[in-house]
Structures are given as C-alpha cells and as structure tokens.
Amino acid sequence: MRQQILAAMDRLLGGEPLRSTGRLSVSQLAVEADVGRWQLTHQHVDLKELFQARVRNTDGAPAAFARQLSDYDKLKRDHTALLAHCAELEDRLNTYASAIQLLVLERDAAARKAPVADIASRRTGRS
C-alpha cells in the first residue's frame, strides 16, 4: 500500500493523474492511490506529511493545471487568428460582390444595347 501511495504521489506531482482530478490535496492523493482518505490521515501520516511538504515546495500550479492553462492560451491565440482570417474573408467577399454587381450591370446594359459607361464613374465608394 505504501508503494501505491508513493506512486500516486509521483503521478500527481508530475501532472499525470490516472484516477483523480490532479488537484494537489490529500483527498485527491487518496483517490489517486485508490486508498481511503482515513488511511492517509491515520495509518500513513508520514506519507501524508511528505506529500504536503512536496506540494509546498512545488512552484506554482501542478503540472496538470499548467498544461490546461497552456492549452487555453493556445486556444485564445487560435481564436484570434481565426477572427483575423474571417475579417480578411469578409473583405474579399465584399470585393467579389462589388465585381459581380458591376458585371451584372454591364450585362444588363449590353442587353438593352445601351452604351457602357466608364467603370470609374460607377464606383459607389464602397471597398
């Protein structure tokens, strides 16, 4: 049982939980080790205290949470890039819509056999 607890301790501190949420608490250590919490608080007090000391010595968030935070940052960067891409596509769409509208007007004018005006005179100021 001590080996189970030590292995679970290493997994939690390494950010690779198998059974628990990855939170660095005695309760989650018990879940990760597949033992009752009371066994850590009453039978293996030395392992509980060792775990708590190792948690105090770690810097910042546990590795599991740090990985989640970096995934979140990556998603935010991807979202920003997608927003820029969508804005570019909307600009292209507006350009294509203007060109199509101009072609339709020219086709209609040619169908009525009316003279085609200069393209610069038909611009509406939209980009």
Rank of each mutant, 00 (worst) to 15 (best):
F65V: 11
E88P: 07
L6K: 05
A114H: 05
G36E: 04
V31L: 12
H42Q: 06
Q52D: 06
R11L: 05
L29F: 07
D118W: 01
V55F: 00
S70H: 14
Q3G: 07
S121W: 00
V55L: 00
K74C: 15
V35A: 01
P62S: 07
R56W: 05
A63H: 11
R23I: 04
Y72Q: 12
K76W: 11
T95N: 10
H85V: 14
R54L: 11
D108M: 10
S27C: 09
D34P: 02
D108S: 11
L103D: 10
C86P: 12
A120L: 04
A33M: 04
T95Y: 13
G36Q: 06
I100K: 04
N57I: 08
V55Y: 00
I119W: 02
K76F: 14
R126K: 03
K48E: 13
L24E: 04
Q101D: 12
A64G: 12
D46K: 03
G14W: 01
P115Y: 07
M1P: 04
Q101S: 13
V35E: 00
R107A: 11
Q68L: 14
A99S: 11
Y72D: 12
H79S: 15
G15W: 00
G125V: 00
M9R: 01
E16N: 09
L50G: 02
Q28W: 06
L69C: 13
R122Q: 00
S127F: 00
L13P: 00
M1H: 00
D59P: 13
P115I: 01
D78Q: 15
A7V: 13
L24D: 05
R126Y: 03
R107K: 06
E32F: 08
T80H: 14
D118E: 05
A87H: 10
A8Q: 07
Q68R: 13
F51L: 01
T95K: 08
A114G: 10
H79T: 14
T80Y: 15
L24T: 06
V35N: 03
N57G: 12
L18M: 09
E88S: 14
A117I: 02
G36P: 01
T58S: 10
D34A: 09
P62N: 06
N94H: 12
T80Q: 13
F65K: 09
Q101G: 14
C86Y: 15
A109R: 14
C86H: 14
H85M: 15
R122T: 01
L103Y: 07
L93S: 15
E32H: 07
R123A: 02
S70M: 14
T80N: 14
V55N: 01
E49H: 08
A110K: 00
L50H: 04
L93A: 15
Q4G: 02
P62T: 02
R56A: 11
Q52R: 04
E16P: 04
A120G: 03
S25T: 10
A97I: 12
D71L: 15
A7P: 11
A53E: 02
Q43A: 12
L50E: 02
Q39M: 09
A66E: 12
Q101M: 11
Q101T: 10
W38N: 11
R107M: 10
T21V: 07
S127D: 04
R2G: 02
H42T: 07
A81K: 13
L18P: 01
S27T: 08
D34N: 08
L93C: 15
H44W: 05
R37M: 09
S27W: 06
S20E: 10
R112K: 10
V45G: 08
I119A: 05
Q39L: 09
